[in-house]
Design a protein around this nucleic acid. Structure first.
Length: 329
DNA sequence: ACACTATGAGTAA
DNA sequence: TACTCCTAGTGTC
């Protein structure tokens, strides 16, 4: 999936272009017809992200009772935005243009109007390339015809968001949302206080569980996925098999600070850039190709970028874990 | 046409 | 640990 950074970007996009608007909600695919009917015609009143989960709040009127839509993208869900969609200067690279970035968590097709269509979620390169050819048509006809299996469509007068492939998509009461959030672990974008860092450190250092498992446990820390797990551990020089309780305090604090930093970079740029200090040339390569962005992720059998040792691959927490047996001894 | 993969997670066993 | 669900792109025949 889309790890935590993508979900925060999506929530922000809803804040910019949907919150405060009355929306038409439908399920072109039909599998969310019941839920869509509950939300159709309501006002969107809030948009929030916690870890990998997003919550959109709706109400009939400003002071009316609230209903929420909870969405979890799972491993291949994605949102497509089209129409009058703001390119937020604070979340895009210089020039205010998000597109032309290859296999990214976020991709944009720029037509006559900036950012008229983009997708946040699982990589969708080819589909978007196809969409690029159709951009002119898409711009003429608003809203565009749904493409593929669109579970939910949320439509304002000028903007549209299509959701496909979510692992979770349901309408909840406020108390139910609170219960879901209560079960989620710390998210540096929700709480970046010293207290949060302290809690993270205490929890990790109290458990016999391997750190490679703990980082994937969304009730411990939320938003980390398989890419950030591998990269955070490599950057910290930590062996994924180390029990949490055996890690020195400063190392655990370092993991939290680095997660916070990588997450902010991800939200800002829309890509998972987990290498630092690259030359201009290497940085350009990394922007163009996701295989040039990571220290160990997807590099099984290839030489470690620092020491040349073959990168190891094993399954941990039911996912592929990549690491360097020497740098992470 | 078919097999396989993917940034995820719930449930059963 | 294994199976299940969700969708689309890529690779192989």
């Amino acid at each position: 999936m889309p790890e935590g950074h993508s979900v925060h970007r999506i929530a922000r996009q809803f804040t910019l272009n949907f919150v405060g608007h009355r929306v038409a909600v439908s399920s072109p695919q039909g599998r969310f017809a019941h839920g869509a009917a509950l939300l159709d015609g309501l006002l969107m009143t809030d948009s929030q992200a916690v870890g990998k989960q997003m919550f959109l709040e709706f109400a009939a009127e400003e002071d009316a009772p609230r209903l929420w839509l909870r969405v979890h993208l799972g491993i291949y869900g994605a949102w497509d935005f089209a129409g009058d969609i703001t390119a937020d200067a604070t979340t895009t690279s210089a020039g205010g243009r998000m597109g032309q970035t290859g296999m990214l968590g976020i991709e944009t097709v720029v037509g006559e109007h900036e950012d008229s269509l983009h997708s946040i979620g699982a990589p969708r390169r080819t589909r978007l390339r196809m969409a690029e050819q159709e951009t002119e048509q898409a711009l003429e006809a608003f809203p565009p015809e749904p493409v593929g299996q669109v579970r939910v469509r949320i439509l304002t007068d000028t903007a549209v968001a299509d959701l496909r492939g979510p692992t979770a998509c349901e309408v909840l009461e406020p108390e139910e949302v609170a219960a879901v959030i209560a079960r989620l672990g710390l998210d540096p974008l929700v709480d970046d206080s010293q207290a949060a860092e302290n809690r993270f450190t205490d929890v990790i250092r109290s458990k016999p569980t391997r750190i490679g498992m703990l980082l994937m446990d969304q009730s411990v820390v939320s938003g980390i996925g398989n890419v950030y797990r591998a990269e955070l551990l490599y950057r910290a020089g930590v062996n994924p098999h180390t029990p949490g309780k055996n890690l020195p305090e400063d190392v655990v604090r370092g993991l939290w600070k680095d997660w916070s930093r990588l997450l902010r970079i991800g939200v800002q740029t829309g890509i998972m850039m987990t290498m630092d200090g690259l030359s201009n040339e290497d940085h350009a390569k990394a922007l163009a190709n996701r295989d040039d962005r990571h220290w160990v992720y997807r590099r099984a059998g290839l030489p470690c970028r620092r020491c040349g040792t073959h990168i190891a691959l094993e399954i941990m927490a039911a996912r592929k874990l990549y690491w360097c047996p020497v740098c992470q001894a």
